[in-house]
Design a protein around this nucleic acid. Structure first.
Lengths: 194, 194, 194, 194
DNA sequence: GATGAATGAGAATTCATTCAT
DNA sequence: GATGAATGAATTCTCATTCAT
């Protein structure tokens, strides 16, 4: 397994640091190699090409997160609680790793379309989990019966993503996880006076 | 005035077509010039550099849209109607100009951070308008009294943007403006069973 | 005659100013036109091309100087006095026109070989005058009988030119004409203890 | 050490040939790379940029020459002999390497001011050596007691340089080193009848 | 497995000159 | 004569990837 080889994660972690510190377009393979403490050529023993580093980076970091999430979420009895947990953990993950937050919310989005489509593949697991929560809530009667699950998923994800991006663009200077409950309530109840 | 010079808009329109058809990174200045029917050098009589074409593109197209919006929105009596109009017009603009939709939702986001920050400057007008609607609705009692306007703005914009991006990534194959009312209702009432 | 047309000299004088202030490689035709107060295209009514401006510049300025010199020098009875006058007037001309000094000693030398060869054509009048003085002095017995006139001319011109260039590169901050007599004596008597 | 790397000198030698054969402004990096038998990109492993090739070229070639000179000159007992040796070796160096002569006397002078100032830095070693000889000769009583060393240096260098340049512009068709003694005597004794 | 020197394709921009008005 | 908008050719440098050691 890739993950077993120590240099694999070493290079991925180096890539996160280098991209966060230098920006996407100033993150040459040689810089990543230097940060990882390996030769340029060594990179290509572990990754097919530069793009593969970036996809793997996203896969590893987001993959770990999604796995943890799926376990944690099952423990929650209601869809509402599951939704809150999802938002909280998402925000917490970003807040706990400032470098990673910068890389996923800003830098990696500068990549070309092809790469971004591959990144979206990885995101699918996350989006599926989100749709499951919404569909479950609909089934249990917690959420509206006429809920358009796909549209609702776009609202939830769009809101989380926009909130996180705004936070990163403001130099992460306020407490993002603290917003989780407000965000969840807004998504649940909308902006309308009830 | 820049806008009065016919070649200025000619080049911007050419840039939209070229970027939509070739992708951001394959849109060389010479390609844009050719599409616009001018010499490469002529571009530089109207724009400082390549980046300036892209910023101007966004400014012109989004600027026009925001101006139209501001006029139209004032005619609507309630915040709820204003919000619907904003979503509708946003979706309609994208649906009416497939090239522009592709460029603004996908291609232009591949630009470097510096350029994206300049694009965000242009977006500020839009976001301010959105915050005004939300603040107004709060004042008139249409929206919750405890509404966090900034968070709500992030939800509304994030939802619109994510919905539009998903539509573009699905090759614009369904009717985006038709979703406007659903989106508005979701934003107003949330996903919760009321 | 070219010289009769006022814009001709206007453009040449503008070129001197522009080159002195911006450097040779930053002296675009459009800059010279602007400084001269004419349109870019007007330049080409008076000059064949950009190179022609520069050659004409040198021809006009150096030509005037050589004419004046030839008259003045004839008045001097001895070769030694003629030589002193030549050095003095050369240095005085440069000291009186700082812009021109900068242009002829430094900037114009950055031009390509072809242009420099044409400039050398103009210099020929000057070098011939210098050789005449040397040949005369030899004939009258003032200078060595075995003097290699061509070599001596290279020494005299090389010394004058190097002295002037050093002075310009030192920002013209000392009194160049004041050196004339020393230079003449050095050329006459050499560095050897007599 | 740079000099130990074979490709470093390979590229510099290629640059001399290319510039001599094509002229300064027609010497593209790709031409130099081709002549050196390396890829364009390889140039940039050894030189910061194109200008750096040219400065290094001058430094290496003139540097070697100055070092050799300093050793040889110390062996000569008198200032007069030192001066003769300096002129002889300078002329011999140029005569032995026609390409280099062309490059240093004509082509490199077309470079911009900034580059020429860097080239002048290299020349300083040469000029200092020359001033030392003059100052020494003054001290030992060989040269005039009232000699203005700086002015004398300008005469000597100006004469050497002008003589060499004239020779190059006349297609190097006569024996330059054969002129050395005449030049030295002219510099020592001047043009005046003694 | 690890290295790192070498490769070479690819693109924005400037500016002398023209010519329709 | 005068204008100035338009032209379009031409070149440095970067960096992902390879492969001989």
């Amino acid at each position: 397994m890739k993950q077993k080889r120590p240099k694999y994660m070493q290079i991925i972690d180096a890539a996160v640091v280098v991209i966060a510190e230098n920006g996407y377009h100033q993150s040459q393979v040689s810089k990543i190699a230097k940060q990882a403490g390996v030769a340029d050529g060594t990179i290509y023993l572990y990754f097919k090409n530069k793009e593969d580093i970036l996809i793997s980076l996203f896969k590893e970091k987001m993959g770990q997160f999604i796995e943890r999430m799926e376990t944690d979420i099952q423990k929650k009895p209601s869809a509402k609680e599951k939704l809150l947990l999802l938002i909280e953990e998402h925000f917490r993950m970003l807040a706990q790793n400032h470098h990673l937050a910068l890389v996923t919310q800003l830098e990696l989005r500068q990549s070309n379309l092809e790469l971004r489509q591959k990144i979206n593949e990885v995101l699918k697991g996350y989006l599926n989990m989100l749709e499951s929560i919404l569909a479950d809530g609909k089934k249990t009667g917690e959420f509206r019966q006429n809920l358009d699950v796909r549209l609702a998923r776009q609202m939830v994800f769009g809101t989380i993503d926009e909130t996180a991006t705004t936070w990163v663009m403001n130099d992460q200077k306020y407490d993002l996880p603290a917003l989780a409950e407000n965000v969840r309530d807004l998504l649940l109840n909308g902006i309308h006076q009830s």
